[in-house]
Design a protein around this nucleic acid. Sequence first.
DNA 1: CATGAATGAGTCTTCATTCAT
DNA 2: GATGAATGAAGACTCATTCAT
Lengths: 209, 209, 209, 209
Amino acid sequence: MSKKNKPTNQKEMSFIEKARRTQIVECAIETIAEIGYAQASLGQISKRANISKGVISYHFANKEDLLDQIAIEYYMAWQSYIAPLIEAQKSPKEMLRVYIESNLTFIEENRKHVIAVIEVVSNKRTSDGKFRFASDHDETILLPIENILTLGMQEGIFRKFTRSSSRVMALTIRNAIDGFTLELMKKSHLDVQEYTRELVTLFDKSTKK
Amino acid sequence: MSKKNKPTNQKEMSFIEKARRTQIVECAIETIAEIGYAQASLGQISKRANISKGVISYHFANKEDLLDQIAIEYYMAWQSYIAPLIEAQKSPKEMLRVYIESNLTFIEENRKHVIAVIEVVSNKRTSDGKFRFASDHDETILLPIENILTLGMQEGIFRKFTRSSSRVMALTIRNAIDGFTLELMKKSHLDVQEYTRELVTLFDKSTKK
Amino acid sequence: MSKKNKPTNQKEMSFIEKARRTQIVECAIETIAEIGYAQASLGQISKRANISKGVISYHFANKEDLLDQIAIEYYMAWQSYIAPLIEAQKSPKEMLRVYIESNLTFIEENRKHVIAVIEVVSNKRTSDGKFRFASDHDETILLPIENILTLGMQEGIFRKFTRSSSRVMALTIRNAIDGFTLELMKKSHLDVQEYTRELVTLFDKSTKK
Amino acid sequence: MSKKNKPTNQKEMSFIEKARRTQIVECAIETIAEIGYAQASLGQISKRANISKGVISYHFANKEDLLDQIAIEYYMAWQSYIAPLIEAQKSPKEMLRVYIESNLTFIEENRKHVIAVIEVVSNKRTSDGKFRFASDHDETILLPIENILTLGMQEGIFRKFTRSSSRVMALTIRNAIDGFTLELMKKSHLDVQEYTRELVTLFDKSTKK
DNA sequence: CATGAATGAGTCTTCATTCAT
DNA sequence: GATGAATGAAGACTCATTCAT
């Protein structure tokens, strides 16, 4: 069955098929993290995977399909790691702290994957030059943060946020987290604990009443 | 005389030479901003400049040279716009406010250039896969912010910052500013005034004693 | 036992084997007729047959073997449809009329198969670039027509034909019939009755004394 | 200037550009005639032209553009050879004779080109599997023949033709001529004079009153 | 100075074929 | 018998770079 028509339909995939795809995606992540998006050709990826170039084409409709998968898998792993930790918190303040902590922990433990996702996402444009993922990002990434802010405001713990100011706040938090990834790329011996503590303090202060 | 040996030595360039280079750099910026780093081939750039592909090769040692120039020119323009405004301020608090304000203003007025620089910098790696600009970034971009923070701390206006916490603070401020660019790419009708106000408030609170 | 050694030896084939081959050949015909010779990969054919690509390789020595089979089966079906109708005629004039009529009828009823055969035959070359089927064509396709012409000449019904002129006549008749197929491909609503009548008239006149 | 936007706009082409294109088109013709449409890759063509593969891509937007050019150039050469000869004739009967004669002569003198055109045209399909050139063919190739037939009928020299019967007649004439090309491919020592004479006789009889 | 032309390495993709299960 | 998986060669096309004019 061709992958052309249902590239992401995992329901009908055999176990071995899923394993292969996962392996290839992992190699793609490794490759992008190591040599960068621009240099990460299918040839480079297949070389690292010790497979023939054709295997990738066999399991993925095209390069875009493979690259998308990197983002999709990452998002799912991220989601299932972060969400329960947040939900376990009672106060918005704790939620925000845990959001920052868990994100940084997740990033540290999945360095290469995060790097690869960032490269893929930031290089992804539609044929008319517009960015893809733009609208997705707001709904799936920012909204949860904004919800925490709104909750904190309603409970009287956080300062007052308008629509627009909670959006800027959420963006800044997210940018701080994403920026941490880049910092981690440059300095692999970064003290994550400390970085986390500082960010928590910073946003604790900036959200306080 | 070929540019091979002295690609960035502007001293010996004739006026016409400089003009040509500037024109090409501008077209490169335009091109990258419009269609993205990956699609911005020398062919595309020369097409937008209405010149032959060879001209670029004549004036720049290679593509990398051209791309670097985008970052260099941007940094210089940025520097000469921001620096005097900061220096005109008396208190660290005002400096920080002006830093944020002037950066956002500068970005809004140079959208395409900023976008291009971000694409170039984030895709630039050395042949062994490491990021270039990494060390530059700390000294030229972060240090000035850290200096403001240190000053504010010494004057007793800002809270206490350790080496590491002022670094995280500076990074977060910078990430907020850079992130604003991306937001501006996605939503061109963004209210810059408002965004600026929110960021100033946010970092005012987070640096306060 | 692999088909490698006796790809066309139908004697030793089991019933199921024959059925499978027939099914695959039919799908190949369908595919070529629909998307053209160049696009008709084994993948496309197997997709239409709802079988795996490997099955084709299992039942046919190679792609060429499968393609040849299309021509062979067609020729046999054509032969057994046409021959008895011709033989049932008494006069050469009637034979010619029936030849034309029966060919056009056969073509109309086997559109896809004819199209596929034409595509296969016209794209088939030996490794040194020469056409295959070239010599076959003369003996199996043209000779029967020439025989009718000779007969008609001997009986004094047709005009005089030399070796060479009966060959040209036969070729022209055959070209008219094959050309009808192409016309049918372009205009599926062609009035076959009418087309037949015109051709019969045309060649009736051109063979008359 | 990219060939993408104006692949066939010959007005703006320099002399040297036209020469190169012509040379490449000629090599493409040679290649297709020799090894067939399916085997005629850009690599094969460039090899025969003793140029790098990239040169073809430089001068033609894509393979289709090159292949189309073969047909276009042929049609123009054919047109300018045939048309004046026909127009010089006074009676429809002579026109038909000259049409057949000049076509066969032209084909003999441009064997390879004709072969290439036939292969290109017969393999050309749109993305949905339909033939291209189909509608063109009727207007540019068949109409002129039909006009001769109509004229002959009006002058009382030819037998009566309805819309549909003149179409079939024209098709048959054209098929005879195109079929001659295939015959010439198979038997290069064909006596063209004789073939021509036979065809003229054949269609003379079949159009007579 | 500028250009058009050419190159050749490299990109993604397709495909006939093989093979272990 | 049948299949999914894998291969590797070949395909068209892109592009940074070089060079003669």
